[in-house]
Amino acid sequence: MSNHLTVLFFATLKDRAGGRQASIDLAAGATVRDLRAALGRQFPALTPLLPSALVAVNRQYAFDDDVLPPQAEVALFPPVSGG
């Protein structure tokens, strides 16, 4: 059983990933932490920003230990600091 996820990238993550959207397959029961690791493998340019990126699952903030529900829509936002 695998979990097929749609991942949306925002702001600088979009530039680093080379696109706005990606699909990723993870094992059932995979957590947000697993997702960060998998995204780092699929998009090496994202790796340095992944630990500090905000992950939203179905438009709700997700912690690293949270399990990803099946077919979830995941969005990643980088911290931005400009003012």
């Binding site: 980088p78 911290p79 400009g82």
Partner: peptide, 22 residues
């Protein structure tokens, strides 16, 4: 929640460009 609930630690220096740079 507070800002740290979302972003527990600052990102490593230089990774997130400032407006002066970007």
């Amino acid at each position: 929640p507070c800002y740290r609930c979302l972003f527990p630690e600052p990102p490593p220096p230089g990774l997130v460009p400032s407006c002066a740079e970007g």
